[in-house]
């Protein structure tokens, strides 16, 4: 096994003797640099620029769409809120209308009852008055008759005396 490793070193040493070696700098270096710069320029035109443009455009497209969507969402939420408010308002109005109607109905009922009671009262009073009047008349008639009768009695008594 050591032979193989030894061989490795020998190979390297051979190469160095021929003027090669690991650290053999020559015109490869500048030419590789030029080649690399050319590659960078070519890739810039072929790859970075077009695809970069697409990425940026897509970013813009997505962000503008997102802004748009957010706007529409906000608008929808606003409308929903407005509807809710209107609904609540309408409900409140309905409640007040109902309450008013109930109140009015109660008032009308109370009025009607009161009127009926009043009428009953007046009728009763009238009847009472009529009764009183008839009673009075009856009394007056009775008194007259009492007067007449007592006169007759007196006359009868006095007449007998006078005779």
């Amino acid at each position: 096994m050591t032979n193989f490793v030894w061989l490795l070193a020998v190979e390297a040493a051979d190469a160095v003797e021929e003027g090669g070696g690991l650290f053999d700098f020559d015109a490869t270096l500048p030419l590789m640099a030029v080649q690399f710069v050319l590659l960078a320029v070519a890739l810039n035109a072929l790859f970075y620029k077009p695809l970069g443009k697409v990425l940026d455009e897509r970013d813009g497209y997505i962000s503008s769409n997102r802004v748009d969507a957010a706007e529409r969402l906000a608008k929808a939420e606003k409308i929903a809120k407005q509807y809710q408010q209107e609904l609540a308002e309408t409900r409140r109005q309905a409640q007040t209308v109902i309450a008013e109607a109930q109140e009015e109905a109660q008032k009308i009922a109370a009025q009607t009852v009161a009127a009926a009671q009043q009428e009953a009262q007046t009728q009763r009073e009238q009847v009472q008055r009529e009764l009183d009047e008839q009673k009075n008349q009856a009394m007056v008639t009775l008194e007259q008759q009492v007067d007449g009768l007592s006169q007759q009695i007196l006359d009868k008594l006095l007449g007998a005396l006078a005779v």
Partner: peptide, 27 residues
């Protein structure tokens, strides 16, 4: 004769371009 796979370190395929030495295998 025992070597199954040969290892080459520091050997280059030299190209001569107008007096310049290049490492062909790298290019």
């Amino acid at each position: 004769p025992l070597v199954l796979a040969k290892l080459e370190v520091g050997e280059h395929l030299y190209w001569q371009v107008g007096g310049l030495k290049l490492h062909g295998q790298v290019f």
